[in-house]
Simulated scan of single mutants.
Amino acid sequence: MVHFTPKELEFIKDNECCRLATSSDDKPHVVPVSYLFHADQFYIATDYNTKKFSNIKKNPNISLVIDVYKQNGNRGLTLQGVARIYEQGPIFADIYSRFYQKFEWVRNDPWKEYEAPIIEITVISKSSWGIN
């Protein structure tokens, strides 16, 4: 398991959008997504008919990039990890509740089990820049 520095944890918690990279048949696919960070795991909600969901079902290896580009200093974190899909059950319910509390877009368009899966990402490696 990867351990984050206090500054990296602060950076993760101060942001809510990242880019998720998946791959299928050696073709990369990158999309911006909202994330939730809880208990050293990243969580992303998606729909069943997305390319990212289809790719993760075929290949659970993913990458995330959280970054901020400003004139006075760029900062970012690149993560590689393994994805797991939750469609129902206690973990789904707990993480969905956290999404509901954090994001207005979830409260405006709520869903139930088997309507939109939640992707859990376990980080296996990381690199960062400008975070110190």
Rank of each mutant, 00 (worst) to 15 (best):
K51T: 15
A83L: 00
A21F: 04
K57A: 08
K102L: 07
W105S: 00
K102Q: 13
Y86H: 15
I95F: 11
K52V: 14
N132M: 05
F99A: 06
I56F: 04
N132T: 03
E120D: 14
Y86M: 05
D109R: 14
Y35M: 03
Y86N: 00
K27G: 02
Y96G: 01
I131S: 07
I85H: 01
I91C: 06
E87N: 13
I131H: 05
D40K: 10
F92S: 11
T78N: 05
D26W: 12
I124T: 12
Y35T: 04
E113W: 05
I131M: 04
I91Q: 10
Y69P: 01
N15W: 13
Y48R: 04
D47E: 14
E120Y: 13
L20C: 08
P117V: 09
V106F: 07
T78S: 06
S97I: 02
S34W: 14
A21L: 11
P110F: 01
I44A: 07
K126R: 02
T50D: 06
L9K: 15
H29D: 13
E8P: 06
A21N: 08
Y114F: 14
S125E: 08
D25G: 14
A39E: 15
K7M: 11
V82W: 02
T50S: 09
Y114A: 07
Y86C: 01
N108A: 11
I12K: 10
H3N: 13
I124L: 10
P28I: 13
T122C: 01
P60I: 05
V82F: 09
T50Y: 06
S34V: 06
N61F: 13
P60M: 00
S34C: 15
P28Y: 10
K51M: 15
I119G: 04
I95L: 11
T46V: 00
V33P: 09
A21D: 05
S97C: 07
S63M: 03
K102I: 01
E115K: 10
E104S: 01
T22Q: 11
S128Q: 07
N55S: 12
C17P: 03
N55G: 14
N74L: 07
T78P: 00
G130A: 07
H3A: 09
D40A: 11
H29N: 11
I62H: 07
R19G: 03
I44Y: 08
S97G: 12
N132G: 05
C17V: 15
F11S: 08
I62K: 01
Q71T: 11
I131W: 03
M1K: 13
V2K: 07
L79W: 08
I124V: 13
G130Y: 11
F99P: 09
S127Y: 02
K57P: 09
Q88D: 10
Q71M: 09
Q71P: 07
N59I: 12
L77H: 03
G76M: 05
D67H: 03
K57Y: 07
L77M: 08
N108H: 14
Y100W: 04
N108M: 10
T46C: 02
H38Q: 11
R75S: 11
I118N: 03
K126I: 00
T22V: 12
N49F: 00
E115D: 14
F4I: 01
N74W: 15
S63Q: 06
K70A: 08
N49L: 08
P60G: 02
F11D: 09
I119A: 01
I119D: 05
S34F: 15
G76V: 05
A83P: 04
V68N: 01
H29M: 04
I12T: 06
